[in-house]
């Protein structure tokens, strides 16, 4: 197993990368403060009628919804699309894992088993991401609703997956050349700083969206939904 010995360049890039993470953390904190400054809502209506009304249960169900493809018609009827969604986000997790573990635990990411799983996820996510670009370009209603940020975000992630795959191959000793890891970490740094200002920040907001929706509808009895 090749040893990952950071050069001065790589060391500098790692510092940039961790600094970018700190910036992202700060920006996200401000973002949450910003979101919570808006007026809270209150459901005054009494629970019950129908009998099963439970805001807490609704909120939990709503939060868990992402892991229940059977819960929504949109995912239940499109299992392939849901699978690509899962693979895409597993690829994101693999890329983030590689970015941090490459400096925190270089021995781990160089392990063949880790490299195989991480590399496969990044490769599949790359393919899915390319598919997403094509889908966004060729589908009229997606074109209509897409902003430059929508295109840039998915293109940026596509490159990031590709760089992540190359970096994974480098740390696993399959490819030679530190430049792959340097490029990947620089891309990750940009990614970390850009994300809070882009649509990718949805992963910060969506738990709140789902929580509030589920709490309200749970209190009214329509979440979890009943199916025949």
């Amino acid at each position: 197993m090749p040893q990952h010995e950071p050069s001065a360049l790589l060391h500098t890039v790692e510092i940039i990368h961790w600094s970018a993470l700190a910036v992202m953390g700060l920006v996200y904190t401000i973002r949450l403060w910003w979101l919570l400054r808006f007026r809270a809502t209150r459901d005054r209506q009494a629970p019950g009628n129908p009998a099963r009304t439970d805001g807490r249960r609704g909120a939990l169900y709503s939060l868990a919804n992402v892991a229940m493809p059977w819960a929504m018609e949109s995912t239940r009827r499109k299992p392939f699309f849901y699978a690509t969604f899962v693979l895409f986000h597993l690829g994101v997790a693999a890329g983030i894992g590689l970015a941090f573990l490459s400096s925190l635990a270089p021995g781990l990411v160089a392990q063949p088993a880790y490299a195989a799983v991480s590399g496969t996820l990044l490769a599949v996510a790359f393919v899915v991401a390319v598919g997403r670009i094509v889908r966004r370009v060729v589908t009229p209603y997606l074109r209509l609703i897409s902003s430059p940020d929508d295109y840039f975000s998915v293109i940026m992630l596509t490159f990031w997956f590709a760089l992540g795959l190359l970096a994974q191959l480098y740390v696993a000793g399959v490819l030679a050349g530190e430049g792959y890891l340097v490029a990947f970490l620089l891309a990750t740094s940009f990614f970390l700083i850009y994300v809070p200002f882009s649509k990718i920040s949805h992963y910060l907001y969506y738990p709140f969206t789902r929580f509030w929706l589920g709490r309200t509808l749970g209190h009214r009895g329509s979440m979890p939904p009943v199916r025949a």
């Binding site: 979101l35 007026r39 809270a40 949109s74 929508d150 907001y205 709140f208 509030w212 929706l213």
Partner: peptide
């Protein structure tokens, strides 16, 4: 603007999953 409304305004990723749910669409 309330918290749930703002959350709905900032969370859309334009994935298009809503398209098949709408009778108009």
């Amino acid at each position: 603007l309330t918290r749930p409304l703002v959350a709905s305004l900032v969370s859309c990723v334009h994935c298009g999953m809503c398209h098949q749910a709408c009778h108009y669409a």
